[in-house]
Design a protein around this nucleic acid. Structure first.
Lengths: 233, 233
DNA sequence: ATGTTTAATAATGTCGACAATATATGACTA
DNA sequence: TAGTCATATATTGTCGACATTATTAAACAT
């Protein structure tokens, strides 16, 4: 089961279904980055008419997974180092803010659940050593809850509905889930404590560092990939 | 002429045209906040079929001007103190970041133009004393240029395409353009100088203060409106 | 009179077809 | 052979109609 937007519309229409399928396909690379989107083809493939398909495309554009040009159609976005940096610059600010607001606005119960979640992930990780998919999901779940805890509707929308699919796409397609597992747990723990102490300023700072560290880690891996690529050519 | 998204699609389709018209109508209150959107009615009114109209609605949802529920239709958003605060919390972070990046990434020429723009606005404001519409437009233009100067595509998209219509809607409908004019000019001047000095940290700080001051000013006006409302009931 | 159930009405979601635009193919020229 | 132009093909943008769902109105019961 994949993590998806925490705010999901109750009655599911055709376009919702198609959106979910295409989102997954793009994030996991089944529809390759940079490739052209053909409306007739996708409509056949998912057995719907072009109306709900186009509705889905509009929402895919919203979460930056495709780019559309009038009369010319849509393409899946290309992943680039610049894009990744831009994305993480934004996340540092926005999730920092989310943390500060979460420290002010989260209910005690929510904070308890957040702590329980972390313990649970720690156990899962101990049992399934090296199996990084669970860590991936656990990490996103952690970030989601804090974002939701901010109670800022615009912030929630931007992070959960618009940017996080891209984050997942970068992670999945560049295979970024590596060695930072244990350190991430410690950082998560510290963030939760700051929130529990209602210390918004510290929670903010720690989250910025956490994402900054994550970004640097990814940049290193990305540089390695680029080097390998240069050698093989 | 109204300020609109700096990134505009080159060939203008029916849905683009309708989008612009409805955007203006909602921002200026011709279609009242909180009112229901009727697809057949708007389709007749703008002389298009429902297909391009629905495309436009999807994009209106994207910039938070309407809210849609499946099978039930769309409503124009309601303005609320909480919404305004959430919006300005975001702006402080995002435009602070934009300023820091602008100080790093803006071309010398762009910075010169930004300075020229400010002088020009100062003159316009001296000539048309009290006429706040020009100040409104000038202020947005100033912020737009800095955001564009950040060269961060996601940041530009979120601020210019998704949040700024809401900012304008709040300003127009609550009549917020009041007495801060001259102080805003000084603050703008200081921000430009920080950018020109390539001092990203300072530019960031000044922009956060600038927006924070703007927010407090608006909150005061909003409180006054609420008080008047309480008295009249 | 108020609240509940049922029928009538209107709205949204989806479909297939056509028109306008872009892309691909092939003929022609230098 | 490379480049340009005209044609053919395919894709996108738009339309009107239908199916499905929500909303309103009316009838009924309490």
């Amino acid at each position: 089961m994949t993590i998806q937007s925490p705010i999901w519309r109750s009655p599911i229409t055709s376009s919702d279904r198609v959106l979910l399928e295409i989102q997954r396909a793009i994030v996991e690379g089944d529809i390759p980055a940079g490739s052209k989107i053909s409306e007739p083809e996708l409509a056949r493939r998912f057995d719907v008419s072009r109306a709900p398909l186009r509705e889905a495309l509009a929402r895919l554009e919203r979460c930056h997974l495709i780019e559309r040009t009038p009369n010319a159609g849509a393409r899946v976005v290309k992943l680039s180092p610049e894009g990744l940096i831009s994305l993480y610059q934004l996340r540092e600010e926005l999730e920092g803010l989310a943390c500060r607001l979460a420290a002010e606005n989260m209910a005690e119960k929510e904070i308890e659940e957040l702590g329980a979640l972390l313990d649970q992930h720690l156990n899962t990780q101990r049992v399934r050593e090296g199996e990084s998919y669970y860590q991936e999901e656990g990490d996103l779940d952690f970030h989601y809850r804090i974002i939701l805890g901010s109670k800022n509707a615009y912030l929630i929308n931007i992070l959960c509905d618009e940017l996080y699919f891209l984050v997942r796409m970068y992670r999945v397609q560049l295979g970024m889930n590596g060695p930072r597992v244990s350190r991430a747990f410690d950082e998560h723990k510290a963030i939760i404590m700051a929130i529990a102490n209602r210390d918004g300023e510290l929670a903010d700072l720690l989250m910025r560092r956490h994402i900054g560290a994550s970004r640097k880690n990814i940049e290193i891996q990305l540089q390695q990939i680029r080097n390998e690529h240069d050698i093989s050519n």
